[in-house]
Design a protein around this nucleic acid. Structure first.
Lengths: 206, 206, 206, 206
DNA sequence: GATGAATGAGCTTTCATTCAT
DNA sequence: TATGAATGAAAGCTCATTCAT
């Protein structure tokens, strides 16, 4: 059996095991068994548990960002792009729960080589959202364009809200990807709209 | 040294170790060392690694919800309550990064006895926010009051956004708890305001 | 509470725990708890686990040999003495199962300081039986008296058979001490009787 | 080195260690050392200390019963079968003192998973002896055949006596298996002979 | 006379990793 | 390309034992 195929089988088994058991609790034995190969072969192809986990994170991160970008076509208006991106995100996470668990839970929880990997992916998504917000600001002829830090914070909040809703949608029966995306839009777009118009909530002086 | 004091020392050490290393990677040896006691004493007082971790989660969850509730005084108008609750939340998480890591990352990542513990706490906070939204709807004389599922989704999104911002604020130098709270309010309040007035973003057909 | 009384309570607890759990599996914690005292007191009175176990063995050995000797009055004819000794033996072991477990199982199984203690007791009983056999030989005017080694072997066999029957009687409902003793007499006395008369089973050559 | 061979080496080491130290006092470290392998290999092949001990018991029980049955050929008259069985028994126990210690002392002393294993083997031997006694009764044209419970008790006593003599023969220099068997026959056969003829020792009315 | 507080040492078990083939 | 055989290192947990009071 060709190496590339075997490797994908191993990564499949690893994502499933890491996603369900966690990085430390997953054993190379179990992964090799699930992949239907012997342990030395896993080491031959993927070097070490650390490298294997990193490979899982990379593959799943790639798949997720690809899905989101594929949803949001550059030509559309900003709100439509956001809407499509969110739908793609919720759909992908619902269909790849183990991959999502690896990215959202496991990779961030197990320290440095891995957290960085996820930060990179997350930064990419946050950058995508940020740019969307700036496009929207331009579309609304907002002048001057909003402060960078403010936009960064909003993008973070938006992504965090989406992540949280993904978990909620997965756990709550009867909530579809589309509904989750609609909730996100309702929640976020108005707040962003206010930003466009330069209004903001007035913090009390306390 | 009296038992109660020692127990708190142990919990301090455990929260720090679990927060930084994760549940599996943290060793009882390291925790005992950090607490300045021998391992058997940790077992004598706290029974097992599992029980110790659970005790950490409970203590930190209690502290966090107490802080949030102490911030939001029931007499105030809803937006003010939300604002104060958010400030308390960001302040607490900034001051207890290890405790926050235990609750937000570790406890959710390491399976069933622990995840349930955090779900309980999170449900409490989500319920608190939900009720705040409903109060706001009443204050705005919204009629009929919004659908339960819709409110639940928004509360989830709001809490998720706040969790995400907490991590961002901790990691980004120069972002204060107050600023994080302001970002949250800007992000969320207008969206909620739209909800109050019955408006919503129109999802495209497809 | 006077020391002597406390000590007996501790020995009671220890015999029970050692008898049921075994020497290694019994923990000083459990013994102290069962005795209703704190662990340091057990050490103050009985020094160490080894000494405590030895004290248990001695007390139970003493009680058992005393019971057997009390049954067999020196004045009676030899068969009657044997009969009474056996009855006393089966009665005592049935009434003190934990003590009997300590002597018969635990003490012999856990190596040298302890096995010697039981060998001493057993030697005493074997000597008693041996002497009984010799008395019987004299009563039967057997001349010359039987070889020492032969008698020793028979006594060993008799004691072993009795020990085995004790376990069987304890485990089989409806078998009384008296019935066990009768079985022993039927089994043993005739064999001994043959010995008295100088007859023996002819081993085939080969 | 092939697995089957290694496993036997491990069992050899384990029988020796368990026989001399006892189940609890024997450490897996010592067993692995004595077998000339590392500890993980012992676990890989034999699972756990409990399983290892059980495997020892089973192997030794099998070997002992096989030896006894191989000695007593079904065609012979009952007394001759008994004689040969006893010789085989004493020979085997003398040649495998550690295995005999495992069966006779350790397995019975350390509680339930193990004691049952030995009870099974012992029941098999007692059944064999019982059947021998019944055959003898038939050979002697005894009518009616003796009561079941009586025979069971006698078989228990006989086996117990043999077990005890085995220990004695092992501990007393200069006592051969043949001599031990002769002592047993002298002790037991006459008693059984009385049984055959319906005679019994008359218990005093107390 | 009695105990709460504390520990050094040791145990069973698991796991990532590597040879030799 | 693929694996059966093997291990160093470490982790969770328990226990007999001792102070200080």
């Amino acid at each position: 059996m060709p190496r590339a195929v075997r490797e994908q089988q191993m990564l499949d088994a690893a994502v499933r095991t890491f996603g369900q058991r966690g990085y430390r609790a997953a054993s190379m034995d179990e992964i090799a068994d699930l992949a239907g190969v012997s342990k030395p072969l896993v080491y031959l192809y993927l070097n070490s548990k650390e490298d294997l986990f990193t490979a899982c994170i990379r593959r799943e991160a790639q798949a997720l960002t690809a899905a989101v970008r594929a949803g949001a076509h550059p030509g559309l208006p900003a709100d439509r792009q956001l809407w499509e991106g969110l739908r793609a995100f919720f759909t992908h996470t619902a269909q790849n729960p183990d991959g999502w668990a690896v990215l959202h839970l496991q990779a961030r929880t197990h320290g440095e080589p891995f957290a960085a990997e996820v930060r990179t992916m997350r930064a990419e998504i946050v950058a995508f959202v940020t740019q969307l917000i700036l496009v929207a600001a331009r579309e609304a002829h907002r002048d001057p364009s909003p402060a960078e830090r403010e936009v960064a914070g909003l993008a973070e909040a938006l992504v965090g809200a989406a992540e949280s809703l993904a978990a909620w949608a997965n756990a709550t029966p009867g909530v579809s990807a589309k509904q989750a995306a609609a909730t996100m839009m309702n929640f976020a777009w108005a707040g962003l709209g206010n930003l466009m118009e330069g209004r903001s909530w007035a913090a009390p002086k306390s």
